[in-house]
């Protein structure tokens, strides 16, 4: 079943067309990768999908709902959660508190109920706390729960950000270069987490530079070059696609993967 439909999305910055008429579908329960050389428009497309930027043309439909023109917080409430290329953790808050903020996407109690410490505000708080420790345990990093984000190693930071996104209870998780800056061990842990997320029924869209990781985790790949889609298909096919090899992978693809 199609969970996300991207249709003819175009985004221009002055004379530059950063994303040029890109369309693709994301099927439920799969992992889709967006790859392409630097400046191919991956992050711009990502921002357009999540409400952080508004495309000039095209539509993004999630389960029949148009997302173009919605604010980021509305998009996350519909069921799309994202992470950032430069992790956007709340540095002074602990790993656990960071994940608790993710729960806000589906919570309703506001200032007044909190001020008066009404029972439902307290209950919501407890629920967020339990959710946070459950998610950190699921990802296998519960021992970091009380450590301020600023003191976390890079690999753990990525995983905390993923846990925080999961706390919004998304149907679709969008990861912007999750392996950037990670060493081999940390990347292994990330791959494990990705499989666990997928197996829990959450669909994943991933922008990534690490080719090994992309080939391993994704069911389908979309290749962008200078803003336009040049190929789409399963990893095996993408590796052999002449346009992709010319634009991005170079001649070394077979040695590399």
């Amino acid at each position: 079943m199609t969970l996300l439909q991207v249709r003819n999305v175009t985004r221009r910055f002055g004379g530059l067309t950063a994303v040029d008429d890109v369309s693709f579908d994301v099927y439920e329960g799969t992992v889709k990768a967006l790859i392409g050389p630097n400046g191919a428009g991956k992050s711009t497309l990502f921002n357009a999908l999540t409400g952080f930027d508004r495309p000039d043309e095209g539509s993004v439909v999630f389960e029949g709902e148009e997302l173009v023109g919605r604010k980021p917080r509305e998009v996350v409430r519909v069921g799309l959660a994202r992470t950032f290329q430069n992790t956007q953790l709340f540095e002074e808050m602990t790993a656990g508190e960071n994940v608790m903020v993710g729960s806000q996407a589906r919570q309703r109690r506001g200032f007044t109920t909190a001020m008066l410490r009404l029972p439902n505000a307290v209950a919501e708080d407890r629920e967020a706390r339990e959710d946070a420790s459950r998610l950190l345990r699921l990802i296998g990093i519960e021992e970091w729960i009380d450590v301020p984000a600023a003191d976390l190693p890079a690999g753990i930071r990525r995983l905390v950000e993923i846990a925080r996104a999961l706390a919004t209870r998304p149907r679709l998780l969008l990861l912007d270069e999750p392996a950037a800056g990670l060493n081999a061990t940390e990347t292994r842990e990330l791959v494990q987490t990705l499989f666990r997320v997928r197996d829990s029924g959450i669909t994943v869209v991933i922008v990534e530079h690490d080719m090994g990781l992309v080939m391993e985790v994704s069911d389908e790949i979309v290749v962008l070059d200078r803003g336009a889609k040049i190929a789409e298909g399963p990893p095996r096919m993408i590796q052999k696609d002449p346009a992709v090899i010319a634009a991005y992978l170079g001649g070394e693809v077979d040695d590399d993967v």
């Binding site: 604010k71 980021p72 950032f84 956007q88 709340f90 002074e92 806000q104 200032f111 919501e124």
Partner: peptide, 19 residues
Amino acid sequence: LRPGRAMRALHGSELGAQA
């Protein structure tokens, strides 16, 4: 409670808070 975490999140990263 919740608003306090939202406030500190805002302080930490507006992008992260929006997400």
